[in-house]
Nucleic acid binder design. Structure first.
Lengths: 151, 151
DNA sequence: CACGAATCGTTTGTCCGCTAATCATTAGCG
DNA sequence: CGCTAATGATTAGCGGACAAACGATTCGTG
């Protein structure tokens, strides 16, 4: 009783605990999960524009700006205006940034392996289920927006 | 390729999409997921102290204070100082608050059912897996803190 | 070619979460 | 008894997300 077996609640609590755990581990290296994600995607795809990088990260442009401000101030990446289209800013990770990213990625990979082990043999089922949840929610949201614009 | 099959990422994206979807539905009633959760737990267990309510919600006391400020200003609940221990504040939902809570709970239940359907027959497996993830992360975090205090 | 529309990055302001510090009150112990 | 310690709520301030509005630039169509 009182266990509140709502799916969304379980999902939220699992997410919160895992996020907190990773954040804590990365904090020992003076970083955070959010800034690592930026750094990671910027390493994976060099010279992205900020808007493209934001869409890879599934965050909005203003959120990205602050992370880039911090990472640039820490000397982990550089912002350069594109010569051909002077509106866009290209993001490039420095050597120091690549080193930090590698250390943080090791943490993320380790955490990932531990969680996968904790889940056990069902991890593929679970991962697919999570993807379906996301697809459903995104579709539901999109449909709602259509109704609004149609009204 | 480039699919980034990290478990934590999938979890985070599913959580984000579902949270956004529920928030959007509740926004049509002038509410948010966060404030509904407060209202809901306050209805379920009347006359809780704020610190106990916060622990039920798995948020910190200062976070709760702001939600209570808003809900009280909207006339959905009342705060009264306990006579026996004048430090504690007891939270009681008003009739208007109960009405709003019921409407929002209907939204939550509907969303829950839809997500469960989207997941399919594996929903129990998935829910248990999410609970294991949380347990692992919480345990890992606690152990880390022990090491810190022991050092 | 020129002017209105779209695009890109940024600023501003809000929401929700946290920690650290503060204030009132109560508990406990000398 | 009285003083210190602990407890409950609050305030202040920060991190990370968002939307809305703004300047700068480029596009596109007349």
């Amino acid at each position: 009783m009182e266990h509140d077996d709502r799916f969304g609640r379980t999902l939220a609590l699992a997410h919160k605990a895992m996020h907190e755990c990773i954040d804590e581990r990365m904090a020992e290296h003076g970083a955070s999960l959010a800034t690592w994600l930026v750094l990671h995607h910027a390493v994976e795809e060099p010279d992205l524009s900020q808007s493209h990088l934001a869409s890879r990260l599934v965050i909005e442009a203003p959120t990205l700006v602050r992370h880039l401000d911090k990472l640039e101030a820490d000397g982990l990446l550089q912002r350069t205006r594109d010569a051909r289209d002077r509106r866009v800013v290209r993001v490039r990770v420095t050597d120091a940034g690549r080193e930090v990213e590698a250390r943080l990625r090791a943490i993320a990979d380790e955490m990932n392996a531990e969680v996968r082990a904790a889940v056990g043999e069902d991890h593929e089922i679970v991962q697919r289920a999570l993807e379906r949840i996301r697809e459903f929610a995104v579709a539901s949201l999109a449909e709602r927006k259509n109704h609004v614009t149609a009204s």
